[in-house]
């Protein structure tokens, strides 16, 4: 079976600085894959490279076997890959409902339609309501996204990401800045919403990572030094040395 995501020999330079060096990553379909690594290792940059936000300097990225490096973000999104952002990135002046609905529109085939009333599209309405219910924001549906609390904005961020029904979902630190209780809730949410999908997640909280992931890749200085099951990663001496330190026990 072809991998959902296949990154081969990708390099990324900003000016003279090589931020990503010989990156190789393979994520199987239906797998929950966590990427961990110290601050500034290049995790978000990796997300940007895969989702088309930035183009690799060299190397290639494949989605379900098709070459996607060099495509624009919306082209990649239309092929079934959706990502969230580490820094909340929503439509601030629009309501929660509008935010999610906009993310539903392309996938339901309405595209740039200017001859349909957006309020009378039953499948759009149902799907939007379902997503809002899933992310526990139904009671906040008419609030402008910019006025939500931080944790609510993070949940909305997840809602927008999964709204299109993408089969490959990438979440960049979805629980960053959340309290323990909020994190627990968010993880349960992520687990439920990505059921049967391919998930790539960047996460600093090790209990979340080891609890959620089928496989883990460790990124250090733009290079993946180890990739394997949580057990393998826990035992890997390079990882212990470079990243986990004493935490590994």
């Amino acid at each position: 079976m072809t991998a959902a995501i296949e990154v081969r020999a990708v390099e990324k330079r900003f000016g003279n600085v090589g931020i990503i060096r010989d990156l190789n990553l393979s994520v199987a379909r239906g797998e929950r894959h966590a990427i961990i690594g110290p601050n500034g290792a290049g995790k978000s940059t990796t997300f940007n490279l895969i989702s088309g936000h930035i183009a690799p300097t060299s190397g290639e990225v494949k989605l379900n076997g098709d070459l996607i490096s060099g495509l624009r973000p919306f082209e990649i999104n239309r092929r079934g890959l959706s990502r969230s952002f580490q820094v909340t990135n929503v439509f601030a002046r629009m309501t929660v409902w509008e935010n999610v609905r906009c993310a539903v529109l392309w996938a339901t085939g309405h595209r740039y339609a200017f001859w349909k009333n957006v309020d009378s599209l039953p499948e759009v309405r149902e799907r939007t309501a379902q997503i809002l219910d899933d992310i526990h924001l139904t009671h906040r549906r008419d609030v402008p996204a910019g006025l939500l609390t931080y944790a609510e904005q993070r949940e909305l961020e997840i809602g927008i990401t999964i709204a299109s029904g993408a089969t490959v979902v990438m979440l960049d630190e979805p629980t960053a800045g959340m309290s323990n209780a909020e994190t627990e809730r968010a993880v349960a949410l992520i687990r439920r919403l990505t059921e049967g999908k391919t998930l790539v997640i960047v996460e600093h909280d090790m209990s979340v990572v080891f609890g959620l992931a089928d496989r883990i890749s460790v990124l250090v200085y733009g290079h993946i030094i180890a990739s394997g099951t949580p057990e393998e990663i826990r035992r890997d001496p390079k990882v212990k040395e470079a990243y986990l330190g004493e935490e590994a026990h």
């Binding site: 973000p73 919306f74 959706s82 002046r93 629009m94 509008e98 529109l105 740039y112």
Partner: peptide, 15 residues
């Protein structure tokens, strides 16, 4: 409206 608010994010919802 979404493009007005956040043209970057619009690209990641297919537009």
């Amino acid at each position: 409206n979404a493009v007005r608010d956040n043209p970057e994010r619009v690209q990641f919802i297919g537009y």
